[in-house]
Design a protein around this nucleic acid. Structure first.
Lengths: 239, 239
DNA sequence: GTATGATTGAAACGTTCGTTTGAATCTTCG
DNA sequence: CGAAGATTCAAACGAACGTTTCAATCATAC
C-alpha cells in the first residue's frame, strides 16, 4: 500500500489530485464533479474511484496531501521558536507569524499550485458538509492545541475564552482573504479572480497587522450595552 | 405584481421563503433542493417554480427580502450619525457599530428567523456561484460606497487602499463568525451548531473590539520583509 | 512466452436534481 | 350560478450526478 510497483501509477494519481484540487477550489465540493475532475486530468472516469474509492475519499486525499506538510511545518516553527525562547513566553506576533505566515509563505514558495491550495483551504473552511468538518477537525486538532497554549502564555492578561474567540475571528478573516472571495467586489485589484505571487506577498503584512491589532485589542466592556440607543429593537412593522 | 388578489397567496409564498431561508442556511445553495424546501413548507413542488420561476430567483428573493431592510437601516443609521456630527468626521467605532452592529442587533431583534438569516448571510458571502456574487454586489454597492467614504474620513492617516483591505478582513471575520462556522471546533460553546440570543448578544462586543483593533492597527511596514528567514523560498522539489 | 495481478476503458446503473406539463381545484366577481 | 383566472396537484421529463461492472490492456515475475 505504500510504495507502488508499476511505473505511471503515481502519474495518474497525482494528475487526479491536481485536477481535483483545482476543481474543488473553483467550484466547491458539491459543485465539482468526478467527470470534470477526471476529464481535466485526462484519465478515465473510473480511475478516480479505482485510486481513491469515492469522491469523499478523494477530497480527503487532496486536503491531506498538503495539510500534513503545512501543519508539520507549523509545529516545527513553533518548536523552534519555543526552543529559542528558552522557557519564556513567545510574543503574540511571533505566534501569529508562525501560524498564518507559514501558511502564506508556503503557498508563495510553491507557485501556482500553492496558491490553488491556499484558496482551497479558505473555501474548505466554509464548506457545510459534515464529513469535511470531521476531516479538518482531526487534521488540525493537535496544531490548534499547541498554538492556543502558546497564545495563552503570550497574553496572560487576556481571558482564555476571549483568545479562543479571537482566534476564531482571525481564522475567518484569513480564510476569507485567501479564498480570494471578494463577493462584494471590495478589492478592486482582483479583476480576474486570480491571485498572483505579488498580491500574496503584499497580503501577508497587511493581514498580519490586522490580525495582531485585533488580537491585542482592548477587551470588550463587560456590560455589553444591551440597547445602544433606543432604535433597532422592540420594533414591529410600521403601522 | 405588487399586491396580490387572492387570500392565502402570501401564506404560500412566505412559507416557501421561510423554508428556503432555513434550507439554504443549513445546506448552502447547491445542497438545498427544491424538493426539500417545498416539502418543509408543506407545499407542492411546483409551487416553488410557480411563485418564483426558478431556484435562482427563489434564492434571490430570500436574500432580498431581508437585505433590503438591513441595508436601508444601515443607511438610515449612518445618515443619523452624520447629521448629528454636523460635518465632522465620525469615529471609526461609530461606523463599525452602524455597519456590523446593525446587522447583529437586527438579527437579535427578530428572534430565530433573524438568526437564521444572519447565518445565511455569513454562508452566502462564501458561495462560489457567480450569480450569487452578482446579486450581492448589486445589493451592497451603494451601502459599501457610503461606509467606505465614512471610514476614509474617519481615518485620514490610513491609506484608502489599506482601509479597503481591512474592510475586507472585517467582512471575513464577521461572516465567518456569524455563519456559525466552527469547522475547527474552536469555540466549545456551540455544541449543537445552534446559536441562541444570549450567544449573539455576547458575540457583538467581542467582535466589535476585535474589528476595531484590527482596523486601527499600526500600518504594516512598507518593506514587506521579502524573505523573513532564509527558508520557504526559491525552493524546488528535493533533489 | 505466458500466467498473474494491477490498471485502464467504455458503458451502464440507479438516484436525484431543476423544471415542465396539463388537468384539477379554489377564489373572485358579474 | 357560472365564466375566468389564480393556484395547487400528481406525474413526468431530460440531464447530471456518484458509482459499479466487466472486458481490454498493460506491466511484471516465473
Amino acid at each position: 500500500m505504500d510504495t507502488k510497483v508499476t511505473t505511471d501509477n503515481r502519474d495518474t494519481r497525482e494528475r487526479i489530485l491536481d485536477a481535483a484540487e483545482a476543481a474543488f477550489m473553483t467550484c466547491g465540493y458539491d459543485g465539482a464533479s468526478m467527470r470534470q475532475i477526471t476529464g481535466d486530468a485526462s484519465v478515465n472516469l473510473a480511475a478516480g474511484h479505482y485510486h481513491f474509492g469515492s469522491k469523499e475519499a478523494l477530497f480527503h486525499a487532496v486536503l491531506n496531501r498538503r495539510l500534513q506538510v503545512l501543519n508539520h511545518e507549523r509545529l516545527r516553527v513553533l518548536d523552534e521558536l519555543e526552543a529559542k525562547a528558552d522557557g519564556a513566553p513567545l510574543k503574540a506576533s511571533q505566534i501569529l507569524d508562525a501560524f498564518f505566515g507559514t501558511l502564506l509563505r508556503m503557498a508563495v514558495a510553491h507557485g501556482e499550485r500553492g496558491r490553488t491550495f491556499l484558496r482551497l483551504i479558505g473555501r474548505t473552511l466554509t464548506e457545510p458538509a459534515e464529513f469535511i468538518r470531521t476531516v479538518l477537525s482531526k487534521e488540525f486538532a493537535h496544531v490548534l492545541e499547541r498554538y492556543k497554549a502558546a497564545l495563552f502564555r503570550a497574553l496572560p492578561d487576556v481571558p482564555k475564552e476571549e483568545i479562543v474567540w479571537r482566534f476564531h475571528f482571525m481564522l475567518g478573516a484569513t480564510s476569507y482573504a485567501i479564498a480570494g472571495i471578494d463577493t462584494l467586489r471590495l478589492v478592486t485589484d482582483w479583476e480576474t479572480g486570480e491571485i498572483n505571487n505579488d498580491d500574496l506577498e503584499r497580503l501577508l503584512p497587511r493581514l498580519m497587522s490586522f490580525l495582531l491589532g485585533g488580537l491585542r485589542a482592548p477587551l470588550p466592556t463587560t456590560t455589553p450595552v444591551p440597547q445602544p440607543r433606543g432604535n433597532g429593537r422592540n420594533r414591529r412593522k410600521k403601522p
